[in-house]
């Protein structure tokens, strides 16, 4: 028992160190994967469906319970959409928001398949469970059935965004400080998000990115949302190309 207690304490300290480091640097780390299937670069004037982002932010109570906050979540969702639109403002692709049509059974299946594929990619690419059958490959796809989305909405790509964040209450921050004195580390907040771009001709996930930030970045504020989206949209084939040109 003593052994496991010690380990738990170590883990808590580790989390504390990480989150404190993040506070200081306000770091945003991204981890981009692009398809290993052959694919054409997006043509100019590509039509992109932005599937309504799934955003959920919560408050960390003094004891560490996570209490969802509707106002923060909606605010962050709006900010994220605005930031993504800003990303597309400088190029000739067209971004359109889309919420799921629940009456279209095939569309529902495609969205659910995307969830399953997204979860699979997270598990096997980001969480230490590499699949030997996917060695040197990133060929996950939703298959040619995505033509339904392309036809129904006259679109070339679908962009999916999923974001979660937690922020410490004042009482939690006080608790964390006090416990740090006692040698116990606790989390004071974190944010994670992933984005995925689907080619609506082939169904291929052409680009997939996971972003993790420390508690120093705050998605509830425009500047925080800007950093998160900047990390999230890193190296994507739709806006990155124009960004590069702008830089050079």
């Amino acid at each position: 028992m003593a052994g496991s207690f010690f380990t738990l304490k170590q883990i808590r300290l580790l989390i504390l160190i990480i989150s404190m480091g993040a506070v200081v640097t306000a770091c945003v780390t991204s981890s981009v994967n692009t398809t290993s299937n052959s694919h054409e670069a997006p043509k100019s004037g590509a039509q992109i469906l932005l599937i309504q982002p799934d955003v959920e932010l919560s408050l960390i109570t003094a004891s560490g319970l996570r209490e969802p906050r509707a106002d923060w979540s909606k605010q962050a969702q709006d900010l994220i959409i605005a930031e993504i639109e800003k990303n597309f403002a400088g190029n000739d692709h067209e971004l359109r928001q889309h919420s799921l049509n629940m009456d279209d059974a095939h569309e529902v299946q495609l969205i659910k398949l995307h969830e399953a594929v997204g979860n699979t990619i997270l598990l096997h690419r980001f969480f230490n469970q590499p699949l030997p059958s996917k060695k040197d490959k990133f060929d996950w796809s939703l298959g040619p059935g995505v033509a339904t989305l392309a036809d129904n909405y006259d679109a070339d790509y679908a962009l999916f965004i999923f974001a979660r964040g937690a922020y410490a209450s004042a009482a939690r921050q006080a608790t964390a400080l006090v416990l740090a004195v006692a040698g116990v580390g606790v989390s004071t907040g974190d944010q994670a998000a992933f984005a995925s771009l689907v080619n609506l001709k082939t169904g291929d996930i052409v680009w997939f990115n996971v972003t993790v930030t420390g508690s120093g970045v705050d998605m509830r504020k425009p500047s925080g949302a800007e950093s998160v989206v900047k990390g999230l949209m890193k190296d994507n084939p739709l806006t990155n190309h124009t960004n590069d040109k702008a830089k050079s």
Partner: peptide, 18 residues
């Protein structure tokens, strides 16, 4: 109200309902 604990609980359960 969205800015309350109850608003947050509704926000999450609305998504569960979807």
């Amino acid at each position: 109200d969205d800015a309350t604990d109850e608003g947050g609980i509704w926000y999450v359960t609305d998504k569960v309902e979807k």
